[in-house]
Design a binder for these strands. Sequence first.
DNA 1: TTCCATGGTTGACTTGGATCAATCCAACGT
DNA 2: ACGTTGGATTGATCCAAGTCAACCATGGAA
Lengths: 247, 247
Amino acid sequence: MAQTLPLNQDITLSVIKTACSGCNLRELCLPYGLSLEELERLDDLVSTRRRLKRGDHLYRAGEPFDAIYAIRSGFFKTDVLLEDGRDQVTGFQMAGELLGLDGISSEHHTCNAIALEDSEICSIPFDRLESLSREIHALQNHFHKVMSREIVRDHGVMMLLGTMRAEERLAAFLLNLSQRFTARGFSHAEFNLRMTREEIGSYLGLKLETVSRAFSRFQEEGYVAVQQKHIRILDVGGLRALMNHRA
Amino acid sequence: MAQTLPLNQDITLSVIKTACSGCNLRELCLPYGLSLEELERLDDLVSTRRRLKRGDHLYRAGEPFDAIYAIRSGFFKTDVLLEDGRDQVTGFQMAGELLGLDGISSEHHTCNAIALEDSEICSIPFDRLESLSREIHALQNHFHKVMSREIVRDHGVMMLLGTMRAEERLAAFLLNLSQRFTARGFSHAEFNLRMTREEIGSYLGLKLETVSRAFSRFQEEGYVAVQQKHIRILDVGGLRALMNHRA
DNA sequence: TTCCATGGTTGACTTGGATCAATCCAACGT
DNA sequence: ACGTTGGATTGATCCAAGTCAACCATGGAA
């Protein structure tokens, strides 16, 4: 009898054996810089993979934290919710990036992580990551660098939100996406957005109409070709200039 | 002959013996949760203290990173500078808080840290912190929590910049300061701002005039008494309501 | 094939905060 | 005591982005 198809969310969160040592993302992800032998020790730790369908929550704000997650494939957003109902997207994450670092401080997740397309993630139990990184210096240092990089990234977003005007923000956003796709071997010039205009707006501190208008403007100016979620960057220099335009 | 007064910045960065085990900030700072014996091992590591005068840079963006810093007394700001000349204050730090975590990722500082009043800091060589935290589990875990807390804090600022209006931002800012002063045993209701309106504005993504107007408005409404840099909070609830006012 | 539902675009109008500019105030050095 | 200087306040005006609203496009479901 053939394997039955998953019928609901719980079942689709299936668990598969995985191995960092064979993962093509190892140069982007946690294993960066480890020796073969160290890599094998990491394999023991990162033992489970989980599939999520578009729209599934990987975790929710308030849930107890006990693992961080590496994105094996797919695309995520994280968002925070204020008591008064306001919310904001705090980031978009793609393959090779880590999710859940914010949960370490209070041992509870402080944001929601939601798959924007069908995705696969590796769970890394945090206590075991800590023990292993007490033994493997390179792992420890790399993990610290990953956390620190997250802080630097957030400072960049604060900068964007605090000092840039709408079109500058969107230009910065597109260039950032392009750069991250490039690092993963995809085209730097052509890609599909996984998020809606509203989600982009939330991340950039803008309303969806403003995002839409900025896209139209970019198209008029010949910087990009936009067709719904499909983006083709025609003039990187133009976008870059626009981004740095202010005194 | 009496000791001569320091004549310039280099000399004022004097070096003194220090000890975490005797520091009254140890419950707020890095030593949190360590046993006495562990504390003594940390003392060896955090061996130098440095005095800075108001306006001195603790470090500058671009400089090589090799230590993080704990504020022993005083008040700092950090700011980032964009290529095009724009800059933004990314945070204000007070006693017991750590500076320099952003430098770990690239092994270079990515922002400037500037004393807003005469201050004293403890240097913690980062490679030695890593070795010690490979041996002391509690130190390792606490350090991870501190980094994670920084990420959570940044998300809060992103939220503020992305979704709040001017008066809400300033209310959030005042409540945050008040809460941090309280945690250090100072009055929650009365304190002196160490930064200018312009610096507050930069941090909050507002112009200094807007900050000034918001202060005046708060005063009219009876939420606070403002006299230049001296702030007295009269109605915490009012501020809190104002902050959460939006749908 | 048609009908929804969701997401995207565009237009008209409003508004919060920026900008420009004139004082005001307090601290400090002489 | 006086003038200087950096910071703060306040007013008048302007504009970028928000709001409200109509309409279009796409992709499923029936």
